[in-house]
Amino acid sequence: MTDALANSLAAAPVQSAPAARVRSYWGGVWQRLRYDYVTLFCIALIILIVLSAVFAPWLAPFDPYKSSMAHRLRPIGYRQFLLGTDEQGRDMLSRLLYGGRVSLLMGIVPVLLATLVGGMFGVVAGYYGRKVNMGIMRTMDIFFAFPSVLLAVAISGSLGGGITNQMLTLTVVLIPPICRVAETATSQVRNMDFVDAARATGASTTSILFTHVLINVMSPVLVYASTLVSISIILASGLSFLGLGVSPPTADWGLMLSTLRQSIYVQPLVSAIPGVAILVTSIAFNLVSDGLRQAMDVKA
């Protein structure tokens, strides 16, 4: 709307212009997301996967740890085994449902932790600049020097196996990239005049960071973090595959893939099932992050 129009509106005899509909930031995000069916579908899919993992004890037709030598490596749809059985005769569907618990935990928890820690470091580095930035970002660069898988293997190897250590490993691996994204976004925002305008009002650094910086840094960081969920799941699977993550007989998608690989010539389809689960989950998270990026852009 032009100024002239605004002025003519202001001059109009109508006493009270109708108040513009108040729509919060997240309300706007939802408005844009509403018609993005791919993203909505993927969100539904993720919710489904999460629910099935949470309610695994009720959904699983069999005990995921009960093996049966008589029913080893049954094909998909063999009698009561909807997705067949693995090399120890355990029901694949049950193991898949239980395995989702570990795998989703590995996908989401390290990303959340890394977003908190890495995001904080990145914002601090970006806002204060100079020496603080140097100190933080060069430290991150050291981590960047190693390929993420190698770094995860190294940390995991020295910490030992187990779910907690695996999550810790993944968190450490994911902090540097998130930190970098947060730092870049922050240093861009930091040079905008509205930050100077806020400083000119006498606002404290904390207030400026929370009111003006975080809100602008949040969306690139959140979107980037959501792409990392799939990477984290795959990394966790890789660690379990190498024997550095959870140990057998725990049901975990990566571990299942690892143990079933010997049977790939016997039951290729059954062996591929955990991989399909990883693939579908990662793609869903990636597409959701893509959709979120568009929806979180106020100017869209």
């Binding site: 905008m192 005049d193 509205f194 009002t201 404290s204 207030s207 009111t211 602008n216 106020v298």
Partner: peptide, 26 residues
């Protein structure tokens, strides 16, 4: 101070009412 660049001098994520109210709140 009134800044030159009217684009970068307002926080793109804040409704303008909040941008103006920020100073008094501080």
């Amino acid at each position: 101070m009134v800044f030159q660049d009217s684009y970068s001098s307002l926080n793109p994520r804040l409704p303008i009412e909040q941008s103006i109210a920020y100073g008094p709140k501080v």
